[in-house]
Write a protein that binds this DNA or RNA. Structure first.
Lengths: 258, 258
DNA sequence: TTCAGAGTTTCACTGTGCGAAATGTAGCGG
DNA sequence: CCGCTACATTTCGCACAGTGAAACTCTGAA
């Protein structure tokens, strides 16, 4: 089997896509016969592929035997949407912030007990290394963005996080006691901004503010990283403003003043 | 080839779904090696299936060779969403309820033993996170909407549900015994309204009422979610009225008063 | 430059997906 | 009720489509 057609091609998957295409063209549920006709597949072949897709939720088969697109597509589609809109929306604002400040700007999202950096504007001036590279991860309690998520969690979850992780030390200034962490988190909550002062990597400091989506959820941390000697806390308001700008673009509606 | 495994099963499609599952669990793009490891597939097999999915838009492969879920899933997912016929009908009433109460309103439908959230009005005031995101799922017995569906099932099916799922605990207040669940379901039946008191997510409470279609079937749960400290059971009648309004619009005819 | 690791391509092999045929089901009309 | 039709579902022998191992290529780090 060396046909040139084999390149980038698996027959079953292509047939499956054809079935999904036909289903997507029909507003109403579709019977097997129609699907077989419009895809050109043998009815028993179509039947079997539809059964496999039905088992995985890609297709839904009702009692009277008609098929429509299934709920798994909605779930996966929602993931795609949420992952695209955050990055695309954030990137422009990040580049502007980068130009204003001359420092690297990072976008970090939460994955369990860690921050994962998913976007970054590059800066020739930055001495920042390993930690803030796209794809890199770091524990919540030593990163500015991570502290935002812990502040969102509330005291019980912060304690659970501390117990679960043991608050590992990365540098001599890392927070390693629950008491210190809780105090830090309180400050984060009050100021809606967080700092990382040489806590994850020696010689690197960050300021971060939270990005929220249309449901009000904290979905990412926007952080500015600088070498320690260039650290400037006066940049906090501008970082907060940028994060708020991105949040609004994501559909976030700030709380009514109380 | 007569293995019992063949029932409802096509190996390539199952492998494809496994790859999609892994990608859905990773917020960031994933390299081939990781995908092969986490799915247990041989790298060349994974590579080929990913290439086939990439050709159809189910997966997107970037220049540096990492993979993420693709745009075709968003397209198909949007179709699924738009075709849930109750969506348009419900949305207007949901927005009104949202305005009246200032809280987030969710529309959840049943998929087997879980509730899937298919619509949501956003609220800047809500601290609600992961669970009620569009596309998210949660077990029936710990969600207000889910309890409506269990009440509709009847005692035999509720017992089967409990046996089948083991009533997994999500929080310290989750219902985990059949006896407690049956009592709760009885209350739901009597009041035509259901509650979720920190049972699926700490710090979040819901009130839900059922939406019925023209055949009288329960087709969705309309729920109002609030942070626990803002929980107000006095909102139950207004939620019930809104659900009834939507039901009527779907052609539901209430039973003759008795 | 070399080397290691990841990604990509090739190919012999076999078991998985295939279509034809048989069987089952539902609805309709007499 | 029975017979018919159309569609759906299941069965099964078969061959080719999908497979994994090996070879090859590429990339980045030392």
């Amino acid at each position: 089997m060396t046909a040139p057609e084999q390149k980038n091609s698996i027959q079953v998957i292509e047939r499956m896509m054809r079935l999904l295409d036909v289903l997507s063209e029909h507003p109403d549920p579709v019977p097997l016969k129609t699907l077989a006709l419009e895809t050109g597949l043998h009815p028993s072949t179509a039947h079997r592929i539809l059964a496999a897709m039905s088992a995985s939720g890609f297709v839904e088969r009702s009692d009277n035997g008609v098929y429509r697109l299934g709920i798994r597509l909605l779930e996966l589609g929602s993931l795609v949407k949420s992952r695209i809109s955050l990055r695309d929306t954030a990137m422009q604002a990040m580049l502007q912030l980068h130009q204003k400040t001359g420092e690297s700007v990072n976008l970090g999202i939460r994955d369990g007990d860690e921050i994962v950096y998913v976007e970054r504007t590059s800066s020739g001036r930055s001495a920042v290394r390993v930690v803030h590279i796209v794809g890199a991860r770091a524990p919540l309690h030593v990163t500015a963005s991570g502290k935002l998520f812990l502040a969102e969690d509330g005291p019980v979850k912060v304690r659970e996080y501390a117990r679960r992780t043991g608050l590992p030390r990365l540098t001599s200034t890392s927070i390693v006691s629950l008491e210190t962490l809780e105090k830090e988190i309180d400050k984060v909550r009050r100021h809606a901004v967080a700092y990382d002062l040489d806590e994850v990597e020696n010689g690197v400091r960050c300021i971060a503010a939270g990005i929220r989506d249309d449901s009000g959820s904290l979905v990412a941390g926007l952080s500015l990283s600088t070498p320690s000697e260039r650290f400037n806390p006066d940049l906090a308001p501008i970082i907060r403003d940028t994060a708020e700008q991105i949040s609004r673009a994501l559909g976030y509606v700030p709380p009514i003043a109380r």
